[in-house]
Design a binder for these strands. Structure first.
Lengths: 250, 250
DNA sequence: CGCTAGCTTGATCTCACTCAATAGCAGTGG
DNA sequence: CCACTGCTATTGAGTGAGATCAAGCTAGCG
């Protein structure tokens, strides 16, 4: 089911009916290769993209040729749902890995809304989650040092993957180069390398060739001043994401 | 009219009927003194706040006691409309100056939506504008140096005030201390002071005691790499905001 | 095998921070 | 009226986190 990861384990979830309805709004699935730009900034768009498999990015192209990531997306994210209301985007959307996406035409969303106005709320919620993550990225850049930033990003990614079952709370795949991580945290690849070594030496986590192993989630969370509140996860999931309740009972 | 500045001069606007309907959803107006915290992070909320007069902030309280602004709001902004869908906020909302706000209960918004589903779109749009500004704040912190950041913020504020008629394109009131500007741009008050001197000496703009005078908008815009696209302004307004068309004809 | 992309490590540099001192100005109270 | 307090702005000197530059290393791949 293409929408199986959408709004999973969040405070606002989709009912089975809503999920089915949304599924029916999918026009087609599509594949993109790693590195491809899927939506170019400023282009008028009439469809939105639900990420089914792989990872995608949203990034601003700076005039000096450098780019900067403003969001990283995991399966279940409605990557450019905001285009439904905005009609064009203020940034690019790209494939970080080879990806599978579901294409949802805006006219289909309109029909859906007309048929069931209640569907609007969870979709709106989804775009607001994005905004909440943006705010946390601002905080990360403004208030944390290099090691905290990287740690915070790893905690966030772990939490989001946890919610869709793509992390067990300690291990997850992260198909990003150190340069990519640098574009998220506004650091050079050189410095990311040093930071990752330090994190390894401190016994907090190991990041190697597209795979992350968090060895001490509790400490990593504290060091990064990470609080998953802004992800609006269900309480049990939020506790696991913060390393408070790693082995949930019941 | 309390909602007169809401979505003014944007690509998505409110119809007269919608504006009137929204006006009817206002339960009361309220005043807050400068410095007051209006909404505390995490508190369940059942109303949203439309800023009528003055300026407000949204900021994250860091554990070390420092705070960091993630948004500055001007009249016409629906400051915490996102609480309508999120139900609680991941940040604080505060009054930067003495402010007048209109309080809109969420139940009134629900009634409004039920009566006229079309109202949803512009409201959603408004929250997406916020997200677009967040993205630009990320870009600003990540890619610009101190002087560019301050200049970019001044350009943005000028553009937003222009849209509601609170700037003539060159002069506007900015009731922020240099420390406040520092919290926006992630700089110390000391460095903001130096940057403002430099901007003055370069003949780009003068910031003094709560008043900004932009003396060379075109150059300031270029220096800051500011592009108002992300504000989704109507074309004529966007040109003025970028200093391309300062004296509109016709 | 050689090529390229990614990672690592070292040396040096720089932008903005920190610390510190001074001045201006508003409000408050004697 | 002046003294005192607190907030804001300004300027200088020294410091440091992360950037930049440069060189070598590793691994996957045609």
């Amino acid at each position: 089911m293409l929408t199986r990861h959408l709004l999973r384990n969040r405070l606002t979830e989709l009912s089975d009916d809503e999920r089915a309805a949304l599924e029916g709004a999918v026009a087609q699935t599509r594949q993109y290769a790693a590195g491809q730009v899927v939506v170019r900034q400023g282009t008028p768009i009439e469809v939105s993209t639900l990420l089914v498999e792989g990872m995608m990015t949203r990034h601003v192209d700076a005039p000096d040729g450098r780019r900067h990531l403003v969001a990283v997306h995991v399966p279940g994210d409605f990557v450019d749902l905001h285009a439904y209301a905005l009609k064009k985007l203020d940034h690019d959307v790209g494939a970080l890995t080879d990806v599978t996406v579901a294409v949802v035409p805006h006219v289909a969303l309109e029909r859906l809304q007309a048929a069931d106005p209640g569907i609007t709320r969870p979709l709106w919620f989804q775009t607001l989650l994005d905004a909440a993550m943006h705010r946390q990225w601002i905080y990360r850049l403004a208030s944390l040092n290099a090691m905290q930033r990287v740690a915070h990003f790893l905690c966030e990614t772990n939490a989001r993957l946890l919610a869709i079952g793509a992390s067990d709370g300690e291990h997850f795949a992260l198909p990003m180069t150190q340069g990519d991580i640098g574009e998220v945290c506004s650091l050079t690849n050189v410095h990311v390398s040093r930071v990752l070594r330090e994190l390894r030496e401190r016994g907090l986590c190991q990041v190697r060739s597209s795979h992350v192993h968090i060895t001490d989630l509790r400490s990593l969370t504290q060091m990064a001043l990470f609080d998953p509140e802004y992800l609006y996860l269900q309480p049990a999931m939020a506790r696991r994401a913060a390393g408070i309740d790693e082995a949930p009972h019941g």
